[in-house]
Amino acid sequence: MNRAAALKVAGTIVLVLGVTLTPAAHLAWFAAEGALICTVVLVARVPLRQLLRRLALLSPFVAGAALAAAYGSHGGDWRILALRSALCLATVIVLSQTTTITELLAVFRAARVPALLLTTLALMHRYLFVLADEATRMSRARTARTFTGGRRFAWLTAASVVGQLFVRASERAERVYDAMCARGWKA
């Protein structure tokens, strides 16, 4: 097993757990954790612009928590919440930018994740971009051939793109199974 990948996954979980469990009053701890994550980001040469753009988006949850705070509720302080989730998000982004799916699957296998789930994860990752390309191609072909009508028409066509995508995915699954058997795969 790839020891570096296992260490990365374990380190990410420990860091995220640490940030989550740090009490809101201990701002110095957040600073220390932030400094640690920044160092890792710089050492690992994670593309900064991408990281910052992703952090700026954060999530609808942070916006919702801020809104709840604006109403003067007695929930947690939303700024601490935003800080926490930003630190955790940066940690997970570092992991996702520096670890391939093959390494991750090796870690999962070592952690005794069932083989069926591993196969499904591997197949999903393999065909993710194939099907995403196919969806883009179908949408483009549709745009090239039809005039854009009203919203109703846009919904009907987008739904038929998705429906067709499912049909193609399940037909491809049959071919994939034949190919797997031809290469000596056993359940």
């Binding site: 069926l116 393999r126 065909y127 995403a132 998705v162 499912f166 995915a169 399940s170 199974y177 359940a187």
Partner: peptide, 24 residues
């Protein structure tokens, strides 16, 4: 049946791709 096992992974990939198709 074993024939259907790849369908799980392909369906997951399908769902991911389908989530990228936007509706106005």
């Amino acid at each position: 049946p074993p024939r259907r096992i790849p369908l799980l992974g392909l369906s997951a990939a399908f769902l991911f791709a389908a989530q990228m198709v936007n509706f106005p």
